[in-house]
Amino acid sequence: MGNTMNINLKVWRQQNENAQGHFEEHKVQASPDMSFLEMFDVLNEQLIEDGKDPIAFDHDCREGICGMCSMVINGRPHGPKGGVTTCQLHMRSFKDGDTVVVEPWRANAFPVIKDLSVNRSAFDRIISSGGYVSVNTGNAVDANSVLIPKDVADTAFQAATCIGCGACVSACKNASAMLFVGAKVTQLSMLPQGQPERESRVVAMVDQMDAEGFGACTNTGACAAECPKEIPLSVIANLNREYYKAKLNGK
């Protein structure tokens, strides 16, 4: 390590869902080229060597596609940089000697499992309530037999880039899941394959979202500002539109 950085961490420690959590201070030496998660790996090895309990945090792909690496860093989901996940954040975004506060996503709907790791199965239940399409079994249809205008495909694709990380919920003052649900509903409602369940889907997903204890959207825009995939607020407007149309049709 050429130029080492000294980082003062204040990390949230919480034994389990019902335990009282607290901040714990740690000093870590890191390279500016490390990712934020690698810095945590260094710290955890140190803790294990010292015979202490390592800090639990979620991660999987470490390349910005799985959405697991949930950390609120200095009050910002995935840290200070826009359009990245925690695994894509590098220590060079901080200064030598910085104090960095790291916390879990906080929302009643995302209970803490341990330390920085939270249970996001509420999202899974929203998806299983309606985030699917019905397909016929048998031979695969020729792809070109279903025509989709380019701009529609682009908008649906943009919405489909949502990785289900939950940063939107963690950033929202109301812990609302509207950006996530908006992204899923937009993706599926725009494509021909999503038409059969179009109206029942949006109602079922919104009902499930409410039942999971997420708050109501007040359009502050914090979600879209913090989304690592830069899902736009327009998916929420689209969700509203889809929902009201379904309700008008008596769904």
Partner: peptide, 29 residues
């Protein structure tokens, strides 16, 4: 709506720079 939304995050953030991602008046309706 305001009271209901306030209940959705029982455990509060230690660091919360609200102005980083939204306008104060949008959070103070």
């Amino acid at each position: 709506l305001t009271l209901d939304n306030q209940k959705r995050r029982k455990s509060k953030y230690g660091a919360n720079p609200g102005s980083a991602n939204s306008k104060w008046y949008s959070r103070s309706m």
